[in-house]
């Protein structure tokens, strides 16, 4: 399976990349929403996108909204991974088309269990 990690923090991308690699994902990276859209044009639809909320150029929530307009990526599961923790934001992400939501800080188990919820791996 293939995943795209979108976060402006290099350290955060590295942590997520490591967790996903252990699960045999092939991992691509982008530092913000616009770069993610560019990357997706090259890779085509991936199975999973982990998306931060607050990033320069294009925020995660806007990326989700954009991507969900494109039928090419409808099979892609999107999980927000963010420090935003208000109920309104979780609701907003879900209505924009995100499938799951993880609040930072998280542990490896959190990611594994959420992938289980998304049907992407055994929890």
């Amino acid at each position: 399976m293939r995943a795209l990690v979108v976060d402006d923090s290099r350290a955060m991308r590295l942590i997520l990349k490591q967790i996903l690699r252990e699960l045999q994902f092939e991992v691509f990276e982008a530092a913000h929403g616009l770069e993610a859209l560019e990357r997706l044009k090259q890779t085509g639809c991936v199975d999973l996108a982990l998306v931060d909320w607050n990033m320069p150029e294009m925020k995660g929530i806007d990326l989700v909204t954009e991507v969900r307009k494109l039928s090419d990526y409808s099979a892609m599961k999107i999980m927000m991974v963010t420090t935003e923790t208000e109920m309104e934001q979780v609701q907003r992400a879900l209505s924009a088309g995100a499938d799951e939501y993880v609040m930072k800080p998280f542990t490896k188990d959190v990611i594994l269990e959420k992938l289980g919820v998304l049907g992407l791996s055994a929890p």
Partner: peptide
């Protein structure tokens, strides 16, 4: 609530 709880149930 991060652990195993689907976001739509949280909401």
């Amino acid at each position: 609530i991060n652990r195993g709880l689907p976001a739509r149930y949280l909401v």
